[in-house]
């Protein structure tokens, strides 16, 4: 029976290795050469950077988060926001679709009467417990009013207590959408 001669299979089956591979020493030296080459290359570029030269070359490929970030894709699901009507009130009509679909059960809405009978219903409170949220985006999919979106590109909302992880209607309304530019490009954060 012939077996595929790829590296993983050879590693799993010592019989498939050649004599020199089985002694390990040459292979280790080969690996050290690769690592050391990158080390000295990056060291050299960083030294040149200090001297103000070669600024267009990156010292290392690593993204230096949080000093640097990549441009996010428009389909990224980030922190929620509630959209607003022209007068600044929430578009949400408290239909409870998002609360119903939410697999983590992290949305809590209380409905109340809207003074305008043509709108009829509005949320008295709208809380999202981000400590429970799984960022599946179902709430955005299901919303019949385009009242909730996940396009803020805010990912750092960690807090010191569980209570602070619950975002109420005012915090959700104050979130703004993030313009998408340069998807995947590394940007310095000012």
């Amino acid at each position: 029976m012939s077996r595929p001669k790829d590296a993983m299979n050879r590693l799993r089956d010592p019989e498939a290795l050649s004599f020199w591979q089985r002694t390990y020493v040459p292979e280790i030296l080969r690996g050290l050469k690769l690592t050391a080459a990158h080390f000295f290359r990056n060291l050299l570029i960083h030294i040149f950077h200090l001297a103000g030269l070669w600024k267009d070359r990156r010292g290392a490929e690593t993204v230096q988060y949080p000093e640097e970030v990549r441009g996010y894709s428009p389909r990224l699901r980030s922190l929620h926001r509630l959209t607003k009507r022209d007068d600044g009130s929430p578009r949400c009509v408290a239909c409870m679709m998002c609360e119903t679909i939410c697999p983590a059960r992290c949305i809590y809405i209380v409905a109340t009467e809207h003074p305008d009978p043509n709108i009829e219903k509005r949320p008295a409170s709208f809380d999202i417990d981000l400590g429970k949220c799984v960022f599946c985006g179902f709430c955005v999919e299901v919303c019949p009013e385009d009242a909730i979106r996940m396009d803020t590109h805010i990912l750092n909302f960690a807090a010191y207590s569980r209570q602070e992880m619950v975002w109420d209607i005012n915090r959700l309304l104050s979130n703004e959408p993030q313009r998408v530019e340069g998807i995947g490009e590394i940007r310095k954060v000012k």
Partner: peptide, 9 residues
């Protein structure tokens, strides 16, 4: 078709 705000839905 205002089912989102309608109590009957």
């Amino acid at each position: 078709l205002d089912c989102p705000v309608c109590d009957q839905s």
